[in-house]
């Protein structure tokens, strides 16, 4: 009898210890995020003002703002979206609505997964060899945007496919029974229903694009440009590359530090906003559908 009680006690004690430990680790994760965010916010918040956001760097990167880098990142987001949004969504549609189940679908899915696993620096290498050299775009906004677009394709494809998969077949059948063609069904019934999740995926892919550095190192990023780009074959400055440059190289690292903190904070705010937007969109559409 005693043995049983002791066993029960021990069992419950082990559970307390184990669950306590996993709770502690989880609190630590939150702690890590809080430390990183608050460190950059506290150090960077004093730097950010209207002038910082609206002027170009001066005095060898030690003074002035980051306006050209913000504009550049905006161009790159726009360029990659123009390419990756339609292609990614169409690819997702093909996978869920058209592709024959079985080998073809499995093959495409494996390839998409493989593409998402390729390190971003390999995308950079490929972008340089293909877009910059082979297609002769030069180091330019086009080359950078296309490289970044390829990078976020898998994310868009996967979210689109998941979004469409979640829609019950009865809707498709109902629409077809009323005489609509497959394409009409797609545009009038399926896509509107899947839109919230698709849009969430698109927003998250913008987040990914805006923070990537390695793919643009050799395809479009410039250390410093005296004026804003005038065409799609110009180089641009970009926020993540700018942060890398002023954090690691330059004449006066100490004087550059405040600007680096400011740039990091702008990047963080961008990421926070994008995540927030994704959540809001998801909630808004979810309510509307109900």
């Amino acid at each position: 009898m005693d043995d049983t009680i002791q066993y029960e006690l021990k069992k419950n004690l082990t559970q307390k210890v184990a669950f306590g430990a996993v709770t502690l680790f989880s609190v630590a994760i939150v702690g890590i995020l809080v430390v990183i965010l608050s460190f950059i916010i506290i150090k960077g918040v004093g730097v950010i003002n209207w002038e910082f956001l609206s002027t170009a760097p001066t005095d060898g990167m030690t003074k002035g703002g980051i306006f050209p880098a913000i504009v550049g990142t905006f161009y790159l987001i726009l360029g990659s979206a123009l390419f990756a949004f339609p292609v990614g969504i169409m690819s997702g549609i093909y996978m869920n609505e058209y592709a024959p189940k079985g080998f073809v679908l499995r093959f495409i899915r494996t390839m998409t997964n493989n593409l998402s696993g390729i390190p971003s620096i390999v995308f950079g290498l490929f972008g340089m060899a293909f877009f910059v050299k082979q297609l002769n775009f030069g180091t330019s906004i086009v080359a950078g945007s296309l490289t970044l677009g390829l990078l976020c394709l898998p994310l868009i494809i996967r979210t689109t496919e998941e979004a469409l998969k979640a829609i019950p077949d009865s809707y498709r059948e109902g629409s077809r029974a009323l005489g609509a063609t497959k394409l009409q069904t797609l545009f009038r019934v399926i896509l509107p229903m899947g839109m919230p999740n698709i849009v969430t995926g698109l927003i998250l892919s913008v987040g990914r694009v805006s923070g990537e550095t390695a793919p643009i190192l050799f395809t479009c990023a410039a250390f410093f440009l005296p004026q804003l780009p005038t065409g799609i074959f110009d180089q641009v400055m970009a926020l993540p590359y700018h942060l890398y440059v002023i954090a690691t190289s330059g004449g006066d690292l100490e004087a550059q530090r405040p600007i680096a903190y400011g740039t990091a904070l702008v990047l963080i705010i961008l990421v926070l906003l994008i995540n927030l937007l994704a959540t809001v969109v998801r909630r808004y559409f979810a309510k509307k559908l109900k």
Binding site: L33, G211, T213, L267, N275
Partner: peptide, 25 residues
């Protein structure tokens, strides 16, 4: 519901920001 966005944020922070944080801290 609290942890999920924390982890999403951790994966959303750009690698260059992690690098910068690593460099100064």
């Amino acid at each position: 519901g609290i942890l999920k966005p924390v982890i999403e944020l951790l994966s959303g922070i750009p690698s260059v920001v992690y690098g910068f944080f690593g460099l100064v801290v």
